[in-house]
Amino acid sequence: MKAIIIMDSIHYILKAEKLLKKYGIKIDLIPVPKEVDSNCGNAIEIKNEEDLFKVNEILKNHKINFKVFKYNEELNFFVEIGG
């Protein structure tokens, strides 16, 4: 199951990428999936879902606004789960 996070603009995507990599979290920069209504065209894919809690904490500590989406196989859709 995939999880992605999106932000207001590319600046925060790159800022989050730098931070999350520093904390050793496996991520990828990807174009926003078409089902997700996003502002800036890019998203960060979190490779291991177990990292989501840590990701949440790190981004909040750095006052970065974000939204988390998880892919729901039954619905074949990304569902917003917080941020």
Binding site: S9, I10, H11, L14, K15, K18, L29, P31, V32, C40, G41, N42
Partner: peptide, 22 residues
């Protein structure tokens, strides 16, 4: 163009901007 698209070159360009800001 940085931050306008999500293709590789746009991201590379955006990264240059980000790096400079940092």
């Amino acid at each position: 163009n940085p931050g306008r698209s999500s293709h590789k070159l746009s991201i590379e360009s955006a990264k240059k901007v980000f790096e400079t800001r940092e």
